[in-house]
Design a protein around this nucleic acid. Sequence first.
DNA 1: ATTAATACTAATAATCATTATCATATACAC
DNA 2: GTGTATATGATAATGATTATTAGTATTAAT
Lengths: 144, 144
Amino acid sequence: MDKKITEKLKENNYKLTEQREAVLEVMLDNRGKHLSAEEVLQEAKQKMPNIGIATVYRTLEKLASMDILYKTMFEGGKFRYELSDEDTHQHHHIVCLKCGHIYEFEEDLLNELESRLEARGFEIVDHELKFYGYCPECREKMRK
Amino acid sequence: MDKKITEKLKENNYKLTEQREAVLEVMLDNRGKHLSAEEVLQEAKQKMPNIGIATVYRTLEKLASMDILYKTMFEGGKFRYELSDEDTHQHHHIVCLKCGHIYEFEEDLLNELESRLEARGFEIVDHELKFYGYCPECREKMRK
DNA sequence: ATTAATACTAATAATCATTATCATATACAC
DNA sequence: GTGTATATGATAATGATTATTAGTATTAAT
């Protein structure tokens, strides 16, 4: 398992029970994906058939509070979770309004904006950026 | 009332009943604020004591779909609504992690990022940017 | 080794935000 | 005036999430 993750677990005195490990493994198995709690539950049940939805919710919430996971909402009124980036910089998301796929990108050109905010007295510690539009595949299909 | 809003209502054949007008007036009275559905209900009840929460939800949803309102989620697991900007550019938000206040700012330096995405085949039609940190007032208080 | 304290779990109840349903009211077309 | 369409408020229902509880497991103290 990722060394940084192990460190964070230790830092927070978070005992990794079998159930919690199953949840974390699901997230590690799905790098780059954004899973809802229900999706995590279904995959975790393959590793531990008796795991309960409440345990999954508690675990996801806790891992997010430790910055091991990142929690956000795209569409549909429920939260989605993904593994946090290993450096503390977060990537951004592009949501395709046609197929619903969520793409990620790394470029971070927000420094200018953050500088302006800090010039106005804000201290910025995090940000969240989402683009909405159409992915190359859907644009291709729409041309036909 | 705002001319652009009236146009959009007409375009969408959206009849402005007294109840819907009360909801819209609440939003107009609260420019720059981000109200939850419950907050809108409480203020709308001052204009129309009998208005129901279901009507408020239906109206907020409809006005958001017409780009008269903007719907987003900050914290707390419920949606908040605000009047959309009159040009189609949306402003951005800064959420203070201490007092919870939501600030707005206008600067739009995302063109470079959007250009890069479009160079990769995406068609971008909207974006959402939120910064999290501490506002000048809370930073002041934390220094004492 | 035993006991007490603490932590964790699954099941399920409860909560909350939101939406669906339904009966009634209002508006509109003819 | 009548029939149809739309809107409303109340409330039930839904879905996502959290709280509660009893039982179990782990850890700490002795």
